[in-house]
Design a protein around this nucleic acid. Structure first.
Length: 152
DNA sequence: GCCAACGTTGGC
DNA sequence: GCCAACGTTGGC
């Protein structure tokens, strides 16, 4: 089982939205590096839900992968902002996962806090200029984050 | 609103 | 294949 972190702007899709819906297809990722991480995800993997482009940015909860290698349907939808005219049904470019809500943390673990706790070498998220929306989290760091959340 | 740090596009 | 121009992300 691996840990991941996935970003979403709460104005677009928030942890509250996921809690209400129970599960969701994580669609709209259009970055190859991020997609390659999505392809590596397995059922049962856990992912931190990160709110970006908001005040304050930070980790707000946890979700679980319940379906892997899902073809992102928005790539074929001409009305979607994520439409990709170069993608074909025979060989879709964009795969993703379906995730389910696990929990919303009682406190936001802000980016400021995460930067104080971890170096950019051990945690890609806190690296300056990082724009990846899907990031692997090593187990040691993931467990520290979970411990911290349980104490508070 | 600014801008650093990317990623992508397309001419050559 | 190079690289300038442009677009996007996302913290501040």
């Amino acid at each position: 089982m691996k840990y991941w972190l996935m970003k979403s702007e709460p104005q677009v899709y928030s942890i509250t939205d996921l809690q209400q819906e129970g599960q969701t297809i994580w669609d709209g990722v259009r970055n190859y590096q991020a997609r390659n991480f999505l392809r590596q995800m397995k059922v049962g993997d856990l992912a931190f839900f990160y709110h970006s482009n908001t005040k304050p940015p930070g980790i707000v909860g946890l979700m679980r992968v319940i379906e892997s290698n899902v073809v992102d349907p928005t790539q074929f939808d001409q009305d979607s902002p994520y439409y990709d005219p170069k993608s074909t049904q025979e060989s879709p470019r964009w795969q993703t996962v379906t995730v389910e809500f696990v929990e919303q943390f009682s406190k936001i673990l802000t980016l400021t806090t995460l930067k104080q706790m971890f170096s950019s070498d051990e945690f890609l998220l806190v690296k300056r200029g990082n724009r990846l929306s899907v990031i692997p989290v090593n187990t040691t760091i993931a467990e520290k984050i979970i411990d911290l959340v349980k104490i508070s």
